[in-house]
Design a protein around this nucleic acid. Structure first.
Length: 697
RNA sequence: GCCCUCGUAGCUCAAUGGAUAGAGCGUCUGGCUUCGAACCAGAAGGUUGGGGGUUCGAUCCCCUCCGAGGGUACCA
């Protein structure tokens, strides 16, 4: 870092140049004859560094004589050419630009390309959880960054208001919970999410039981060793002999047991208590674990396996026999949607509204405002038409009853690349792909965009490539003007999030915990703050902290969401930056410095000899415009998150090292102006992240 | 099998192909009668997973191996 305490730019051109020159000279002198490439390089490396320094000296001298007044100093160090500028002059110009433009400081020149950012795609009838949070935070920030970079941007949300999950939730509602909805309207959306999880638990019941048996056959050596005895007991309960033989074969070989290969409905319910006897025994007297060469370590303990068995056992006799009928009911519910059965559509509309009320509240809180609202239910029909046309034109085909596009085959690719994509279910109901084919075309044709971004987690990257390729085969020329902004998903310290299992912390719960903590900290640190302001600031700080945690990680890195970390408002986090902003506000307040006065006094601005911390801060402020351009080009809000943290740090260094209010004039005025510029830049940077900049906290 | 991502300090993460690889948390030592201590100063902590290659120069680009995660025809 050559410029600590100064301001300028460095150039490394002489380093590369020197090597070329030395090599050329050696070659001309014939000294490289017979040398291997490696030896030649080593030979050149002997003199290149000195030559680089000599070249740098020449360049520096040329710059000095060529434009004697342009730079305050020009030097050559280690082969680098460093040029320094007159800081006082540049400082006044920069501060004028920042304070003069205000919230628009950093804004790039207008661009023609219209961009649509599709993000925040929650499903109705499901809970909004921390996994969705990363998507919304990224989408909101990316939209703001692109806008600041000069693009006309349309933010779009895409609500999953129909699909298998909705049907399952509503089946569960009608079948088991009709009329039970909470009296409190605000609680209804969340309640639907719970019904959805219940529906999945019921429908997956048989599979969950069989999965546990598979787990036991792989991880519980005593279970496998004792399987003969267990099955002998089962035999005494008049169990089908074929089923006994099947279970024996599968369990001893650690293979999956397939429900449809069992002959008798009651086999597993009869077997279950015997499995329980074994598991209880195993949990009480666990056999010490002995690692076996080539065998994977068990992922569960006897206690955990027993707990899973118990959860299933409580429902085994009621649920196992009922599952086939439930599946049939779900399928009939699906048909009611397909034929738009009026009572069912009315129920769908009512429950959908419960979820939408939640989403609108959450979006508002996250600063997500949308120019376009897409709904899956509204693109189903157009999707079907596209599928029909794809089939008609021979791009798609029906394979084993399933409408698919064999993309690799159509493109003549030998190695599996885009593979085969189903575009409609065999029963005629629509898939996500059916709808995205239609939606993607709509974005360009109906909304006139030039580029469409999908902010969706990275697990869907093959999916989006498939959509693009199918649209290209379809002849849609703008298909290539789409881009999937993929990001890694959010995990919990204890493992992966599954909305099916409902193990993700709900947004509302996390929000409440964070706000409570924020209120408490404010009450400690700033007891005089009035209640209403405290509530507002707690929201700015709490939500900001949550958002920063989601943004201060590169897109391709997994975020492990740890509530304890989210509740820490110290160190590298949003409150650090917000605090710097609040401090700047307070100093400006005490100094009675207004933006107008600062702009008016720019001509006479005089820092005297600039302190290193002042220069550091000025350089930080000056970097915002290019940071915005880079973040937009790379689609990485992380860059802004890092930038604004670094800027806050520089401001901290500045006000710890330099007295503002107690400084002598004209330094006092100059530092107040610098503080105003820093405050504005901090606020703008936070704004790009969708994070509020409170004036006090 | 094929494809994608990741591997950097005890932990969580940064770092346009450039100068001595930086922050936070945690640990240790200090600093509030001084514009607000959600802060600051200092210490300790590194074979950037291993091995090759390209380059004047590699955490970054290429190859390979190891390890972790994800995707791969009717989930979204």
């Amino acid at each position: 870092m050559p410029f600590a305490g100064t301001w300028g730019v460095a150039s490394s051109v002489c380093l590369g140049l020197a090597n070329d020159v030395v090599m050329a000279e050696l070659a001309a002198a014939g000294e490289l004859e017979g040398l291997s490439k490696k030896e030649a390089k080593r030979r050149a490396a002997e003199t290149a560094p000195a030559r680089a320094q000599a070249l740098a000296d020449q360049v520096a001298a040329a710059v000095r004589t060529g434009s004697p007044d342009a730079f305050s100093r020009v030097e050559a160090v280690n082969g680098y050419v460093n040029v320094y500028v007159e800081a006082n002059v540049v400082a006044a110009r920069l501060i004028g630009e920042v304070v003069g433009h205000g919230a628009a400081y950093g804004q790039g020149a207008p661009r023609a390309e219209r961009v649509m950012v599709e993000h925040s795609q929650p499903n109705t009838h499901k809970a909004f959880h921390v996994g969705h949070l990363r998507n919304s935070c990224l989408g909101v920030s990316l939209g703001r960054i692109l806008r600041a970079a000069g693009y006309p941007v349309q933010d779009a949300t895409y609500i999953g208001d129909i699909g298998r999950h909705v049907i399952r939730c509503l089946w569960c509602y009608e079948r088991f919970h009709l009329g039970e909805e909470p009296a409190e309207p605000a609680a209804r959306g969340r309640w639907l999410g719970e019904l959805y999880v219940e529906a999945e638990t019921r429908l997956a019941f048989r599979q969950d039981a069989l999965d546990l048996l598979l787990l036991l056959s792989k991880e519980d050596v005593d279970f496998v060793a004792g399987i003969d005895r267990l099955l002998k007991y089962l035999w005494r309960k008049n169990t089908d002999g074929l089923d006994i033989a099947y279970l024996l074969g599968r369990i001893t070989h650690g293979q999956e047991i397939k429900e449809e290969l069992l002959h008798e409905e009651e086999t597993i319910p009869k077997f279950w208590p015997l499995v329980g006897d074994h598991l209880r025994e195993a949990a009480l007297n666990p056999t010490p674990y002995v690692p076996v060469e080539g065998e994977p370590e068990p992922t569960t303990t006897p206690g955990e396996r027993l707990a899973r068995w118990e959860a299933l056992a409580a429902r085994m006799d009621d649920w196992w026999p009922a599952v086939p009928a439930w599946r049939e009911e779900v399928s009939q519910t699906f048909q009611r949607w397909e034929r738009k059965d009026p009572p069912f559509v009315a129920l769908w509309e009512e429950t959908r509204a419960w979820s939408m009320a939640d989403f609108e509240r959450i979006f508002a809180e996250l600063g997500a405002s949308f120019d376009v609202w897409f709904f899956e239910s509204e693109v189903e029909e157009e999707g079907r038409r596209i599928v029909a046309e794809l089939l008609e034109r021979g791009i798609a085909e029906v394979s084993d009853g399933l409408p698919v596009v064999k993309i690799d085959e159509k493109l003549g690719l030998e190695t599996p690349t885009y593979r085969t994509m189903p575009i409609l279910r065999s029963d005629g109901t629509t898939l996500y792909s059916t709808k995205d084919l239609a939606l993607t075309r709509q974005k360009f044709e109906r909304y006139g965009v030039d580029r469409a971004l999908w902010v969706v987690d990275v697990r869907q990257s093959l999916y989006f490539q498939q959509i693009v390729k199918i649209l290209e085969l379809f002849g849609f020329s703008q298909a290539a003007q789409t881009h999937h902004v993929g990001y890694e998903f959010v995990k919990l310290p204890e493992g992966i999030i599954s909305s099916r299992k409902g193990n993700a912390p709900a947004y509302d719960d996390v929000r409440e915990a964070v706000l409570a903590r924020a209120r408490q900290v404010i009450a400690e640190k700033n007891p005089e703050m009035p209640d209403d302001e405290r509530e507002r600031v707690a929201r700015d700080v709490g939500i900001g902290s949550l958002k920063y945690a989601m943004l201060a990680r590169d897109n391709n890195k997994v975020v492990v969401f740890d509530l304890d970390e989210a509740l820490s408002f110290e160190g590298h986090a949003a409150p650090y930056i917000q605090y710097a902003h609040a401090r700047a506000c307070r100093i400006l307040e005490h100094g009675e410095a207004t933006d107008e006065a600062i702009v008016a006094g720019l001509a006479g601005l005089d820092f005297g000899e600039l302190r290193p911390e002042e220069l550091g801060l000025l350089q930080g402020i000056a970097a915002l415009p290019e940071e915005i351009q880079r973040a937009a080009a790379e689609e990485r809000p992380l860059l802004i998150a890092n930038y604004v943290y670094d800027l806050a740090k520089r401001f901290n260094d500045f006000y710890h090292a330099c007295q503002v209010l107690h400084a002598e004039e004209p330094t006092r005025t100059a530092r107040l102006a610098l503080t105003a510029a820093a405050r504005q830049t901090l606020a703008n940077g936070l704004g790009l992240l969708g994070i509020a900049a409170p004036r006090a906290m």
